[in-house]
Computed example of a mutant assay.
Amino acid sequence: MYRNWRCVCVSDFFFSRIHIFYLKKGTYYINLNNTSDKETEYNIKVENEELVDIDSINLDSNYIEIEEGVKKAVKYTINPDNATFTSVDWKVSDTSIVSLGYVGNVMNIEALKEGECDITVTAKNGKKAVCHIVVKKAGDHKYDSTIEKASTSKDGKIIDKCSRCGDVKVAQIISHPTKVVLNNSNFVYDGKVKTPTVTVTSADGKTVDSSNYDISYANGRKDAGTYDVKVTFKGNYTGSLTTKFTIAKANQSLKIKSPKKKMKVGAKAKIKIKANKGHGKVTYKVSNKKIAKIKKGKLVALKKGKVKLTVTLKATKNYKQKKVTITIKVK
């Protein structure tokens, strides 16, 4: 029945067999005559929005120069981006020079041989864009290097990329630094500032050249305590590592010079010592106060017998406590 209907064109649409193509919203009336000239009226209401046509197509490159064997991606965009029909056709003027591989809105071009050609992308309404391709013979590689710096937890890379063909290769792995080693991490107080030397090792067990880092030491580093050494990386490395070293308290030196080890009952002897500079507070103690006692820095012998005299240097910021004991015979 439908094949005998005539096509009727009406302002904003046309009717062909059973397909109606429209441009905008509205209500339309169509009179159709069949083969018996009997007229039938149809009331058609169009509900959809107005069609949006393509104004232009743009390529991200209109001229490409590449070498044989190289692949290159070309991307297109449609204006406006809300166009109703967005399908396009791609065409190359010489398929022996380049081949095309279309994925989404990207055309992947592979250069096959030396020569020139055009690739054209065309929309359904005839809008088009053209990219001219020049394929040159493959020459020697010309590599430029870029560096992905090594961190303290991840290796870096030196990557070479050919500016002519795009070939990429990893020229060198930069092993990441893992450990900071000091030539001495345990010192004893001697009144001098401590600055231990630093060696940095990487994950491959090799030593990192000192030109790739700076060293900073904590302030002070003379008194007993714990101090930081920070290594901050530069050059082919990034990040920092910190280690510590300690300065332990020193032993104090102490010698009792007086009294002697023998005293007579009733004798008095001034207690004299020889100690290191900066020593701790001095205290005295006797083991038996009936035999001897300490009065105003002197040992006083009271009766016959043996007594122990202990001299103590109390601990300080930089020295440990020190005790010396002697036995004195009172006769």
Rank of each mutant, 00 (worst) to 15 (best):
E114Y: 09
L309K: 02
I215N: 01
T40S: 14
V188Y: 11
I54R: 02
S56K: 15
N276R: 04
Y237D: 03
N318G: 01
M107A: 15
K272A: 14
A224R: 01
N33Q: 13
N276C: 10
C9K: 15
L182I: 06
L23G: 09
D12I: 08
T195E: 07
K113I: 12
C7S: 11
K192T: 15
K306R: 10
I294N: 01
K137H: 11
F245M: 03
F15H: 08
D190M: 05
I326G: 00
Y76T: 05
K290F: 01
S96V: 00
T316Q: 03
K206P: 00
K71T: 14
S96L: 11
G297S: 05
N58Y: 09
D144R: 11
G139R: 14
N219Y: 01
V324N: 11
A111Q: 13
L32P: 00
L313V: 05
I173T: 15
Y227T: 01
C9N: 10
N48Q: 11
M107L: 15
Y28R: 15
G191N: 10
G104A: 11
K149G: 03
N251E: 13
L302N: 04
R3Q: 12
I271Y: 00
L302R: 12
V135N: 09
V286C: 04
V130R: 11
V208N: 01
V92G: 05
I174M: 06
Y213N: 04
F15M: 13
C131T: 10
F85E: 11
W90A: 05
K293E: 04
V282R: 12
P196H: 05
S56F: 11
